[in-house]
Design a protein around this nucleic acid. Sequence first.
DNA 1: TACCCGTGTTTACAGGTTTTTCACAACTCT
DNA 2: AGAGTTGTGAAAAACCTGTAAACACGGGTA
Lengths: 106, 106
Amino acid sequence: MAVGSASDKTGRLEVRPEEHAALVDGRPLSLTVRELQLLVTLWSNPQRILTREELHTSVWGTPPRRDDRSVDVYVSRLRAKLGAALPDQKLIYTHNGIGYRFSPDG
Amino acid sequence: MAVGSASDKTGRLEVRPEEHAALVDGRPLSLTVRELQLLVTLWSNPQRILTREELHTSVWGTPPRRDDRSVDVYVSRLRAKLGAALPDQKLIYTHNGIGYRFSPDG
DNA sequence: TACCCGTGTTTACAGGTTTTTCACAACTCT
DNA sequence: AGAGTTGTGAAAAACCTGTAAACACGGGTA
C-alpha cells in the first residue's frame, strides 16, 4: 500500500477525507457535509476521548456556545446512519460529562 | 520515551489527565469525572498525605463545608473501582483525622 | 411567485447517569 | 466503653445525553 495514503479501513468502514467520502463494504454512505466532518474528526483520533469543545471547534470552526447541543445532535445522526449500514457494530462511545470516542474495536 | 510525557505508570495503573483517562493494564477504567479528578489529584502527589480540604479544593474547586463527606464518598467509590481492576493492590491509605495518601508502593 | 427538498440549526422533553446528601455501620484511639 | 472518625449503601436532587420535531434557508423546478 502506498505510503501516505489518507484513506483507511476500520473493519468494513473506510473513510476518505480527500474524497469527501465514507464507505461501508465499498458502498458510499450518504452523509451530509457536517456528518462527514464529524466522522472524519472522530475517525482521525481513534480511541481518544474528544471533548465537545474539540469536536465543535473541529467541525464548526469555533468553540460551542453555552448549551449548544449540535455536537450531540450530529453524533446521533451519524450513529443512525452508521448503525443502518453496520447494525452489529458500536463505533462511537459516549463519555459522560466529557465527550465522545471513536473506537473501531471494542 | 519522549521527555515531558504527561502520562505515567504506577505499576499497572496509568493515569492520563489530558486524555481524561485512567488505565489498568492498558484497559480504561470507567470513572466518572469526579472520580477521575480525585484520582488525578491523589496520583499527582504520591506518598503525600492530602487533607480533605486539599482534596475537596482540588476536585470541587472550593473548600468543603462543615461536615461535608463527599471526599470520603468518592474515595470509597474510587477504591471500589481500583480494587475491582487491581484486586491485590492497596493504593489509597487513610490517615485518621487528616486525609488520604496515594501510594503506588507499599 | 409558489412549492418541494435537502441540509443545517435550534428547541424540547424523556430517559439515563452522576453527584449530593443522609443514615447507619464499622473502625480507631484513648 | 465512649467519643470521634471513616466506610458505604441508598435515596434524592442535579445534571447530562439521545433524539424527534420545529424552524430557517437556499436551490431547483413548475
